[in-house]
C-alpha cells in the first residue's frame, strides 16, 4: 500500500465513527421525521408506517395547515418567544458578561449565583413559576395588587399577559451563555485594551469598539441559542398553562398529537416536526445572514 492510499485509509477510519454517529443519531431521525410525515402512522399501525397514496401524499400537511386548530397559534407563539429570546437574552447576556469581566469585588460570587438557575431543569423552573404566579398566594399577585388593588384575575389565563408571564419564566436564565461570552472576553489580549486606551477609547467606547467586535462570533452563537431555546419552548408552557388561553407552542402541540391524543398521531406530530426543523433552519440562516452583513460591507470597502 502506497503512502497516499494509507493516508486515505487512515483518514477514512478516523472519520468513520463520526460518520456513523452522524447517520444514526442525526441524519436518520431527521430523515425518519421527513419520511413519516408522508405516511399514515397512528394507533392502527404503530410499528409499520404506511406511505400515503400519491394523490394524497400531503394529507398530513393539509390537516396541519388547514384543519388542526392549534398550529397557527403555536407557530405564532414559538416565533414570538424566539424573537423575545433574541431581543432580551442576547443584550442581557452581553451586559452581564461585560460587567462580570471587570473583576469587580464580589463578581465571582455574583457569577456563581447567576449560574445556579441554569443547572435547574426547566420543568422545575416551571413549577417554581407556577407558585410565583399563583393567583391566590403567589408573590407576583401581591405585587400586582399593590398597583392595582382588588385585582383577582389569574394572570396565566389573561391572553397577552400570559405570553409575557411565560417569557419571564425562561428569558432571564442565561448563565450558560454568559459563561461562554465571559470566556471569550477574558481571551481578548490586554494589549488591545491598552492600545485602545492610548487612542482614547475608554468606558462604553472600549466595549463598543473593542470588546463587542472581538466577541461577535460568540454573540452569534448566543443569538442562535436564544432563538432556538425560545422557539422550542415546552416545559414552561406545560407547567404554567398546559396550553390554555392561547399559549400553545410548537413543541407542545407535537406532544399533544403524539402522546396526549388517544389516537397516537405520530405522522401528524412528525409533520409539525418537519415544519419545526424547516423554520429552525430559516431562523439560523437569518442569524447567519445578519451577522455576515457587516463582514460583507467591510469586504466591499476593502475591495474599493
Amino acid at each position: 500500500m502506497n503512502i497516499k492510499a494509507r493516508r486515505t485509509l487512515f483518514i477514512t477510519l478516523f472519520l468513520l465513527p463520526t460518520c456513523i454517529c452522524f447517520l444514526v443519531f442525526y441524519a436518520y431521525p431527521i430523515l425518519q421525521i421527513l419520511a413519516t410525515s408522508f405516511c399514515q402512522w397512528d394507533y392502527t399501525n404503530m410499528t409499520s408506517p404506511k406511505l400515503l397514496p400519491m394523490n394524497d401524499l400531503f394529507a398530513n400537511y393539509k390537516y396541519i395547515f388547514r384543519e388542526y386548530p392549534y398550529f397557527w397559534e403555536a407557530l405564532r407563539n414559538s416565533l414570538g418567544w424566539a424573537l423575545v429570546g433574541v431581543c432580551i437574552q442576547v443584550p442581557l447576556t452581553l451586559v452581564v458578561s461585560i460587567v462580570l469581566s471587570k473583576g469587580l469585588k464580589g463578581s465571582r460570587f455574583a457569577r456563581n449565583v447567576y449560574i445556579i438557575p441554569s443547572v435547574i431543569s426547566s420543568a422545575a423552573m416551571g413549577l417554581i413559576f407556577l407558585q410565583l404566579y399563583n393567583a391566590r398566594y403567589g408573590p407576583i399577585q401581591q405585587i400586582i395588587q399593590m398597583f392595582k388593588p382588588g385585582y383577582t384575575e389569574n394572570i396565566l389565563l389573561v391572553p397577552g399577559v400570559n405570553f409575557w408571564a411565560i417569557v419571564c419564566a425562561y428569558v432571564f436564565f442565561c448563565g450558560t451563555t454568559t459563561i461562554m461570552l465571559l470566556g471569550q472576553i477574558h481571551a481578548i489580549p490586554a494589549e488591545l485594551y491598552e492600545a485602545a486606551k492610548i487612542d482614547g477609547a475608554k468606558g462604553l467606547k472600549r466595549e463598543l469598539y473593542i470588546t463587542i467586535p472581538l466577541v461577535k462570533p460568540t454573540i452569534k452563537t448566543v443569538t442562535t441559542l436564544a432563538a432556538t431555546s425560545g422557539f422550542l419552548l415546552y416545559n414552561e408552557v406545560f407547567f404554567l398553562t398546559n396550553g390554555a388561553a392561547g399559549t400553545k407552542s410548537i413543541s407542545y402541540i407535537i406532544r399533544e398529537l403524539a402522546i396526549t391524543s388517544t389516537r397516537t398521531q405520530y405522522a401528524r406530530a412528525n409533520t409539525i416536526g418537519v415544519v419545526q426543523i424547516f423554520i429552525g433552519l430559516i431562523l439560523v440562516s437569518i442569524i447567519n445572514f445578519v451577522f455576515s452583513l457587516e463582514k460583507r460591507s467591510h469586504r466591499n470597502e476593502v475591495g474599493r
Binding site: 405516511c39 410499528t47 409499520s48 408506517p49
Partner: peptide
C-alpha cells in the same frame, strides 16, 4: 437507505388492523 427504511413496512402481517 434510512429514508426507505422510514417508509418501509416492517411487517406486512401487522397491517391487518389498519
Amino acid at each position: 437507505a434510512t429514508m426507505v427504511a422510514g417508509c418501509g413496512n416492517k411487517d406486512a402481517g401487522t397491517d391487518t388492523a389498519s
